[in-house]
Every structure is written in structure tokens, then in C-alpha cells.
């Protein structure tokens, strides 16, 4: 096996750009350029669990595709374990695993065991090694006992765990997980998060994309927030929360609230944003502000005549910081 070139970072990205060119129109076609990555820089240490956060279309999956050799960048460089993802694809592919969220990407007519055996052959893993490793992965991922059932009969959670088993077959040094818990029930998602954290604790470098902020907060060592192809913040989850200043959150429930009431709340000096979301039979109003206690005292005056309940104040979560950052960056 060829040795790796010297590297400090398991993943190193410098001024990475990706521009997709598509066409518009049927007869009179015009070229349209869509900037997916507008020059990003990343440096991820070996053994780190790194989260890339961002809304849909921000560039998360594009970044993963470039780093897993599936997509060529327009310009810039990206290295995994010191190997260039454009020119040294074979070296990169042997050392990485990747898992995309969702139910596609498995052979549904095959059993879980046969899926793993097929991919083990593709990765040229010797039979005695693959047999042992498949057994271990099935056990660890809770698929033992169902491994000879066809995948078409698996629950979504089982399919996702099978994806992860497939991604780990070649015992990769770097694992890319693109929204791995998407669509999973809360228990399945939590179990998978525990597994992912465990892998990082065992020395694997993990590059995770998600738009579940609590997930990133719970398991990532470091995160970066990407918006419209640019990194707008990077650091530990705690440092990201601090980036948005001394922000707190006031939340309460109402049956109804007018646009004028929302604008009145937004008019307070200490308030940076007001978000209204539907939750079951009520509307939840979330106010991001600098002095939550003071805002709470003014609610009665500002929302005169409105019955509000379950008023609470709390410290900002990563999600609150994310909402601030994404709003600021727009």
C-alpha cells in the first residue's frame, strides 16, 4: 500500500469553488451559472468530528461530493489525508467511507448481508477479513438477526444503519456523513448519533453535514456554518453561540398574533429577531434578544389584550445562533 504524503489535517480545503453550468430554455438555450461553493477554506484535524451546517442549497452536499471524489471542483484545492481529491482519487477512495442520508443507495432486492458482501468485494477486502468485519458491523449496528432479510423489508432506521455499515466496511480513516439522521424517528436518530460519536472517540475523522442544530451541538467537536457557498462562521458549538453576542431567547405561546404585534416586538432595541412557528394548536413566538428578562417584563405592555402563555427565557442554543448567522449573512 502506498504511504500517505505528510499531512497535518485529515481534511484540508483551500479556496474551493464549484460552479455548475446549466441551460435554460428549450430552443433558445442560454447558459446559467450557479455558484454552489464560492471559495471555502476548511482544516479538520485527524480524529475530529466536524459538522458542516447550513440550509438547503447552501453547499453542504457539494462539499461532501468534492471531498469524496464524486465531483470535480471548478478551482481551489481539497486534500484528504494529504491526497488530492482530483488527482489521487484511488488513494482517497481506499481510505474514506461515505454515507448519504435517505433510503436510496442500497440494493433492495438483496439481503443486508449480501449488500455488504457486494461492497466488500468492490473495495477488494479479503474474504476472511470481510466476513469478520461484516459480522462485527451487523452486531454493533443492531442488524444481527435480520441480515439475511431483503432490504426492501427493512425500516428506514435499519436502512440507515445498513448505509453506515457499508460506509465502515473498509475501516476508513475518514468518514463522510451527509445528513445521516434525516427521516429517522427520534430514538433511531439518537442511537445513530451515539454510534457516530463513538466512532470519533475511536479515532475516526468524521465530516458530518446536518441541518439539525441540536445534533451538531450534541456530538460535534467543531462546526462551520455555510450559507450560499460561503463559510460564515466556524468554531466549537460554544464559540459559535458566543459569536452572536450575549443573545438570549424568550418564548411564549399564543392562539393568534397580528403582524403589528410582531413589528412592535421587533421594534425593541434589544430584540434582534422574532420568529413565529406553528406547534400543534398554538403559535410559538421566539424572540432573540440581548436582555431576555427585560423583554419579558415588557410583553404585557406590548401585547395588550393578547392571551399569551408558557412564557420562558433561556440561553441561546446553537440553533438560535445559527438562525442569527444565517439571517445576518443573507
Amino acid at each position: 500500500m502506498p504511504s500517505d504524503p505528510p499531512f497535518r489535517h485529515a481534511i484540508e480545503v483551500a479556496d474551493l469553488r464549484k460552479v455548475y453550468t446549466t441551460t435554460r430554455g428549450t430552443f433558445r438555450r442560454t447558459k446559467v451559472e450557479n455558484v454552489a461553493l464560492a471559495g471555502i477554506d476548511l482544516a479538520i484535524a485527524p480524529g475530529e468530528l466536524f459538522g458542516l451546517l447550513g440550509p438547503n442549497g447552501a453547499g453542504k452536499t457539494t462539499t461532501v461530493k468534492v471531498l469524496t471524489t464524486l465531483l470535480l471542483p471548478t478551482s481551489g484545492t481539497a486534500r484528504v489525508l494529504g491526497h488530492d481529491v482530483v488527482s489521487a482519487t484511488g488513494d482517497v477512495r481506499r481510505r474514506i467511507g461515505f454515507v448519504f442520508g435517505g433510503e436510496r443507495g442500497l440494493y433492495w432486492r438483496l439481503s443486508g448481508y449480501d449488500n455488504l458482501r457486494y461492497f466488500a468485494d468492490l473495495y477488494r477486502i479479503p474474504p476472511q477479513v470481510s466476513k469478520r468485519r461484516i459480522g462485527e458491523l451487523l452486531e454493533v449496528l443492531g442488524l444481527a438477526g435480520r441480515e439475511h432479510d431483503k432490504v426492501e423489508g427493512y425500516s428506514r432506521g435499519m436502512k440507515q444503519r445498513l448505509h453506515l455499515a457499508r460506509g465502515l466496511l473498509n475501516d476508513p480513516d475518514v468518514l463522510f456523513l451527509d445528513e445521516p439522521t434525516i427521516g429517522l424517528d427520534p430514538v433511531g436518530a439518537r442511537d445513530l448519533r451515539v454510534l457516530i460519536r463513538g466512532l470519533a472517540d475511536h479515532g475516526k475523522t468524521i465530516f458530518l453535514t446536518t441541518h439539525y442544530m441540536f445534533e451538531a451541538d450534541a456530538i460535534c467537536d467543531r462546526v462551520a456554518v455555510i450559507k450560499k457557498g460561503r463559510i460564515v462562521a466556524e468554531g466549537t458549538p460554544s464559540s459559535i453561540k458566543q459569536l452572536v453576542g450575549d443573545i438570549g431567547v424568550v418564548e411564549f405561546e399564543v392562539d393568534t398574533i397580528s403582524q403589528e404585534d410582531i413589528e412592535r416586538l421587533q421594534g425593541l432595541d434589544t430584540v434582534s429577531s422574532v420568529v413565529v412557528t406553528e406547534r400543534e394548536l398554538a403559535l410559538v413566538v421566539t424572540i432573540h434578544c440581548a436582555q431576555p428578562a427585560e423583554v419579558m417584563t415588557q410583553l404585557g405592555r406590548l401585547l395588550d389584550g393578547i392571551a399569551f402563555r408558557r412564557v420562558s427565557a433561556r440561553e441561546a442554543t446553537l440553533e438560535d445562533a445559527y438562525v442569527e448567522l444565517i439571517g445576518e449573512a443573507s
Binding site: 461530493k65 469524496t68 471524489t69 464524486l70 484511488g90 477512495r93 481506499r94 461515505f98 448519504f100 435517505g102 436510496r104 443507495g105 442500497l106 440494493y107 433492495w108 461492497f119 468492490l122 473495495y123 477488494r124 457499508r166
Partner: peptide, 18 residues
């Protein structure tokens, strides 16, 4: 159609043999 093409192309498998 099954979404397995990226997995195949992202593997180190020998294209000619495959």
C-alpha cells in the same frame, strides 16, 4: 435509479473488471 451509482463510482473498484 437505485441511487447506487455514486457508491460504485466512488469506490476504488477496477472499472474494467466491474
Amino acid at each position: 435509479q437505485y441511487g447506487t451509482l455514486p457508491l460504485l463510482l466512488g469506490s476504488p473498484a477496477n472499472r474494467l473488471l466491474t
